[in-house]
Computed example of a mutant assay.
Amino acid sequence: MNSTTNPNPVLLVHGINDTAAVFAKMAPQLLRKGWRVHDIDLTPNNCDRPLDYLAQQIANYVEKTFPPEQPLDIVGFSMGGIVSRYYIQRLGGIDRVQRFITISSPHHGTVLAYLLERPGSIQMRPDSPFLADLNRDLTMLERINFTSIWTPFDLMIVPPTSSQMQVGRDIQVPVALHAWMITDPKAIASVIVALSEPLRQHHPLGQTPPLQKSPKIDSNI
């Protein structure tokens, strides 16, 4: 059982060309630990529409699924982490979400996004106006428990350090492949730890404390 007495429901948000089925290993483990797990199928999932269009789907899902007074936690994988950031930072999710975990998300873009000329992929390019806008408001994420989990061996998020943020908690997990970040036991254990953490003290906007560095997780654990 997780360490919270009344855990928030957890919403899992998938990445590009995926569906909620991609969490087939993670979701059952969270359920066994006592969380109520929800997921969403973003459509279209291939970047044919802008990421803010997909973020509105998260906002609609939250509004229809949870009562107004119910806080929740979000776990976003890859593109799903960026879509979730837009929901939190631009669509009012900051007032609903208490713990936000991104897994191998291109917070500062990925050069592989240049391979697709689609609205969503253009928004995930390094230095895109979309990401620049979100990253101007990083201090907003200090109002919640924010954790970025990533692997230095990522070949989809290039460079892998694009998943690092200047706020919240930074957890590096030595997983060999991008897709394994939501199936690897070490990565899932990191998600469970982040979801179990007590809520931190909220910090006023503009007074961001230093990035909290977590030790690297040894590959033989």
Rank of each mutant, 00 (worst) to 15 (best):
M124T: 07
R85T: 06
M181Y: 07
D39V: 01
P210N: 08
H107L: 01
V191L: 05
L12A: 12
G168E: 14
I122M: 07
R49G: 11
W150R: 03
I58Y: 03
T183D: 14
T19C: 02
V75T: 01
L155R: 12
T147W: 01
L155H: 04
S148V: 01
E197Y: 07
Q29K: 14
V10S: 06
D137L: 09
K25R: 11
A187M: 12
M140W: 08
P174G: 03
T139A: 03
N46Y: 05
P185I: 12
S196Y: 04
D170C: 06
G93F: 05
G109D: 12
R136V: 13
P67E: 08
H38I: 03
T19M: 03
P106T: 08
V62H: 01
I157N: 05
Y53I: 12
L155G: 09
P126D: 04
P68R: 09
V10M: 05
I58W: 02
T183M: 10
V175R: 14
M181R: 02
L115K: 15
P67I: 02
L72Y: 07
R118H: 04
L211V: 09
E63L: 13
P129L: 09
L30M: 10
G109N: 11
M140F: 07
N135F: 00
R118L: 07
P159A: 02
M79S: 03
A176N: 09
I101N: 03
L11F: 01
G168A: 09
I103N: 13
V37A: 01
A55S: 15
H14G: 10
H178G: 03
V111M: 07
A187R: 10
I171G: 05
R125I: 10
A187D: 12
I192L: 09
E117R: 08
I88N: 09
T139F: 00
G92A: 10
L205R: 12
G34K: 00
E69T: 09
G76D: 13
S128P: 00
N135P: 02
I74A: 10
P160I: 02
K64N: 11
E197P: 08
F130I: 04
M140P: 03
T161V: 12
P209G: 08
V75G: 04
Q166K: 13
L134E: 13
Q98S: 02
P198V: 11
S78Y: 12
D41W: 04
I188S: 07
A132M: 12
A179P: 00
K186L: 15
S78T: 14
Q56V: 06
N220T: 14
P204K: 15
G120V: 00
G15S: 11
R96T: 15
V158E: 08
M79C: 02
L195P: 04
F100H: 04
L205Y: 08
P44W: 00
Q89N: 07
P160E: 10
P28Q: 06
P174V: 05
H202L: 02
H108T: 10
E142P: 00
D154Y: 05
L205M: 11
Q70V: 14
P68V: 09
P152H: 03
S128A: 05
R169C: 09
D39W: 05
F130R: 07
K25E: 15
P185D: 15
S148A: 08
P160C: 13
